[in-house]
Amino acid sequence: MSATAVETRPSSSAPQFATDGRRRLRGIRPGLVLAWLVIAVVLAWAVVPWLFTGQDPISGVPAEKLQAPSLAHLFGTDAIGRDLFTRVVYGAVHSLSGALVAVTVGLVVGTLLGVLAGSLGGVVDAIVMRIVDVLLSIPGLLLALSIIILLGFGTVNAAIAVGVGSIAAFARLSRSEVVRVRQSDYVEAAFGSGARLHTVLFRHVLPNSLTAVIGLAALQFGAAILAISTLGFLGYGAPPPTPEWGLLIAEGRNYVATSWWLTVLPGLVVVAVVLSANRISHALGRNR
């Protein structure tokens, strides 16, 4: 549903001339292909890390400590001689599953709230929107920290905390999409041809409003990876020696002056994954 649907845009309905930007996007998009490739590779890291590296992520070879990147150690080694690339590969599962949990929490709770508010309206709408206002008013990181205090440290708890922070975004978007679709002529036409509320909701409103929500989910996936690595960096996520990406960077911090690879390379992996997730979200969002 991602790449192909764009091409079927009606030529007759589009304004006589699209801007060159819009036109350019109809062709093949190498950036998008690359983005999917990055996500695919990182997913593979998470599922079958041993296919990518033969070394141990937890125990190192002290003699080989703090070596710069080389063919033997792609990303170099850390202070106790562990291969950094191996640690990054084995860390993928923590970041990805954490992001998955976070997005699921936000998506399920937020969309449910938003769809309820949008389709029921009235008091329900008012209450939900106030809840959303409150969630928005507390900065994401502080909200996450408050929840972590409640739930305790750890990967899953950090992920849930991040997910709660994204509820507001999902609720707002899904509500406004539901409201938009509900006002459309084709929904009225469906009522006009005898459809009942639940039929209209499931046949027309939800399918047409959730596309945008999927796009947001991809975006939030990237944001969740960032947020989880931030919590890991601050020490509220997985405990050492877990090779969680944020924690890896935190550990490398002490060697900033001498061993640049310890911070730079894991960070670049995070940037690449987040960038790819955003790129995919962008493409999904355009399909509306």
């Binding site: 960032l226 960077i249 940037v271």
Partner: peptide
């Protein structure tokens, strides 16, 4: 897409 903490270190 850049983590704040990493940007600071870099």
């Amino acid at each position: 897409s850049v983590p704040v903490f990493w940007l600071g270190i870099v």
